[in-house]
């Protein structure tokens, strides 16, 4: 994916319009940060970008060369994580990642899965059931889920909300790496993360 285009995107919560006619374009190497109060539509916008939710108006185009496809058709190139992303608690960290790799059709050797777990700070916990992880560890696994298939578009919703200082370092590393080969969109209220932004979008609350 070379770029992602939002055209006239609106998002409604029932009868309430929280986002109105947003149009922008993001290219490789760019990082966009979205801030706003709770309920202002940050998470919904990320879900729309991921193809998990339909916008009330407008559409999203994932552009590669001259071709544009819907996010739902570009799943293999999009990585998404959010606090409400749940993985399978009855599987281990390694089994979860292996499952999602198989299901995405990504050829990734076991060693690479272990390396990924190390990268996100879960070394030695690969074979523990997800149900035994702490909330911080669960959140780190979400990073692994989003990065597993090396997506061009990385969508991070509240990426450091459950993490400590070391977790924050992980986020910095991830953003820096993603900047080199793809697009990053972060939804957050943490002021520290706003400095990542090339583009900053502030969503106003409801009047």
């Amino acid at each position: 994916m070379d770029a992602i285009e939002l055209t006239d995107i609106s998002i409604d919560y029932g009868a309430r319009r929280v986002l109105s006619h947003l149009t922008l374009r993001l290219e490789r190497g760019m990082v966009m940060v979205i801030t706003g109060q709770n309920g202002s539509g940050k998470s919904s916008l990320l879900r729309v970008l991921a193809g998990l939710q339909r916008p009330s108006t407008g559409h999203v185009g994932c552009v590669t060369g001259t071709q544009a496809v819907l996010p739902a058709d570009a799943r293999q190139d999009i990585g998404w994580m959010a606090p409400d992303l749940m993985l399978y608690r009855e599987l281990t960290g390694r089994e979860n990642l292996r499952f999602f790799a198989d299901v995405r059709g990504v050829d990734i050797p076991d060693a690479a899965i272990v390396a990924l777990l190390d990268r996100v700070g879960l070394q030695g916990r690969a074979d523990d059931l997800l149900a035994t992880y702490s909330s911080g560890m669960t959140h780190r696994l979400r990073y692994a889920y989003a990065l597993l298939h090396r997506p061009s578009l990385l969508l991070l919703d509240e990426p450091s909300v459950m993490l400590d200082e070391r977790g924050h370092a992980l986020l910095e590393e991830v953003v820096a790496t993603q900047r080199l080969h793809g697009i990053t969109v972060i939804a957050t209220n943490d002021p520290r993360e706003q400095r990542f932004a090339d583009t900053l979008v502030r969503l106003e609350g409801v009047v």
Partner: peptide, 13 residues
């Protein structure tokens, strides 16, 4: 119920 549907929806054909 376990809210794992989103992860599956995003990853699986």
């Amino acid at each position: 119920e376990q809210r794992t549907a989103a992860a599956l929806r995003l990853a699986a054909p």
